[in-house]
Design a protein around this nucleic acid. Sequence first.
RNA 1: GGGCUCAUAGCUCAGUUGGUUAGAGCGCUGCAUUCACAUUGCAGAGGUCUCAGGUUCGAGUCCUGAUGGGCCCACCA
Length: 767
Amino acid sequence: MLKSDKMSPQLPKQFNHKEIEPKIYKMWEEKGLFMATRDPKKIPYTIVLPPPNASGRMHTGNVLMVAIEDLLIRWKRMKGYSALWLPGTDHAGFETQVTYERELKKQGKSRFDFDRETLYNNIWEFVQQNKGIIEDQLKKMGASVDWSRYTFTLDPHVIKTVHATFKKMHDDGLIYRDNYIVNFSPKDGTTFADLEVKTEERNDPFYYVRYPLLDRKDGEVEFVVCATVRPEPIFIDTHLAVNPSDESKKWLIGRQVSNPLTGATMNIIADSFVDPAFGTGVVKLTPAHDKNDFDVARRHNLPILTAIDMRGKVLNIPEAGELAGLYVTKARKKAVEILQAKGFIEKIDEKYVHGVSVSYKGGDIEPMVLPNWFVKVETLKKPALDAVLNGDITIYPKWREVTYTQWMEEMRDWPISRQVVWGIRIPVWYSAKENPELVVSFLSADGKVLNGTLGDLLKDHNFAEIKNGLQTLIAPKNAKYVISSEDPKLSDSTAEDFLPETDTFDTWFSSGQWPLVTLHYPDSEDFNYFYPTSVLETGWEIIRFWVSRMIMFGIYLTGKSPFKDVYLHGIVKALDGKKMSKSLGNVINPEEYQEQYGTDALRMGLISGTANGKDFAFPKDKVIAFRNFANKLWNMTRFMFMLEESSGVVVPEYSDVVLARGNDADRKIVGELHKLVGEIDTELEKYRFGEAGDKIYHFMWDSLAASYIEHIKDRQDKDVALSIFRYVFKNCLKLLHPFMPFVTEELWGYMKSDDEAELVVNEWPQV
RNA sequence: GGGCUCAUAGCUCAGUUGGUUAGAGCGCUGCAUUCACAUUGCAGAGGUCUCAGGUUCGAGUCCUGAUGGGCCCACCA
């Protein structure tokens, strides 16, 4: 194809990313170039996009993630794979509900003003309004995702699959109900996942409480002393504990003391969790309100008795005495008064500083024992661990592997219930007739929030009113239930009345099935062709929560690991090298850089900043350097057209014949290019993105621009030199395209002949 | 307490299985501008690779220890 019969294009002096990027993305999208086909002659290459929060915005970590995944996908697509990048967004249950409730608060309302269904629908609307933001941002980033295969975690087919998985696990005996100690915040009125709980340093008095020793022998102390910051639930305590290897306390094991508040008899047990060096080396056990104590109680089969209710008040029971009905802080004061009056306070350390659990909304956590749905992980975790150990799955970088293996070894049963509305409801229904002891909270017909057991409430309210106004429900551990997505009454009108479980699944329960649901498991052609996926790319901080669950679900449901490789990128820190945080005011908004320097520069800068999965400071210098690089490419092209025009030569299509007419410089640059192609492939196979990027950068700038172009200026046979330049440059555009898709595609448009495909779907250079 | 990770140029970092004069980007110094790009070009300065031992013909790279950062997990009765 000869170019001389056309006017050479007149390029502006600089690469204008703001103008060109949207134009290019639109072209890709309209031509459907990201759509993957199930071509039996091709090898599939699949990546699932870790779904960002549907109502959120992209942060720097998301940008890095998109840059890396798009690089991999574009590279493999050009190499001839059937490359599919599956997009989607996550409902982000808790996070979104909190955001929505903040909006409600501005309107002077709260979630208690709505029944469950209305609240859900309102949040749905809220999310729909904001959903476009993240999709726009993905497009601006140049993400070559297949939009025709977009999934939202609350799509009907996702819910269907998640429900089916729950049912199957239940049938396989992997789901059970049990009471479990959860992070409950009386102030926020809900439980929080461990992730959502932060520890806050606080100064509280540390009380050394005397427990009178029973059956005291000669020479023995009168009191066993135990230090605590919270004496108020002592009235319910039944046991103290010491460390069995603590010689000075050994004699206490099996002995009894009397409860300093109630006078009831308490036993002293041994458990190695007790730190002999801390406090007095004696621990009081309050299993219903302390995670450790709960675990100890489980191990030793101790009673788990509740002292505090969900409003944060001491229970109104006889044992509570004067404390009954008081809020925790008041009850604590009262308890201290009583103990002091009895002479049971040995001393008070006023300067004690300790960690207190606080929800990230700010409410104090009152650990509580509530019924929960659990996944039994014993049989699931072994194959998931083995998949990594035996090499079915390779984790990059290698040193992160231990994070995974340790977690899988230690993994305990997984509580999957969350008391938030925004999520996939656990598909369980409770018969009203069989479960009068259900604790129900509902919005009555006249707009009041009422609580109580179902049996009691039905005395004054009819069932329809309760069901329509239902907010939350707590079913005792042994409640009778049926598993069904729909109200069982819908399929059998003669059936009894049912109330739905109001708990939703932990988001990791649904996102753990992401590789499956995005491919429409179990019975779709996509699933048959594209599963297992090729590489799972994400930040290392969610390896435990997400990666481990996907591997477990994938193997459990399909018998195959859901992906072959896991690439874990590092966290992008602020310019000062510290973790980005709102309070430090060092959060980087990637859009500012994108706006100023262009998407290509932002992508390449980030990718070049890390290649080994380590955390790294936002590489501002590199972003600027690659903005300059984009402009360099632009001007290389511009200059080539000017030379072609001014020299007036006919530039022949590159071939071995042309090269044979050339000189040593020609052969050298072509040779270097061919070597480069091999090197790029090698680096990318090893996920060494930064190295690969640097090599193209230096070849194009140093060898091609600084050296070869200067050389062309002196050439008499400009036709040969320009032909070789075109050949080398076009191949460089290909190599660079996965890194900097916009500028390369735009320049390709000027360089390509009419019968050549767009760069995004063009062929990767071969040596 | 357990685990991971880092320490290389003024700054941010690369350096893959140990192999000749240790690299990049930015910054810095000097020079250059009608003739693609100042988002440019040319030239240059700048490092006893944290410290102490060890293995080796050979160590920035491997081993041991120390010091100082960062992160994760557990715990704080």
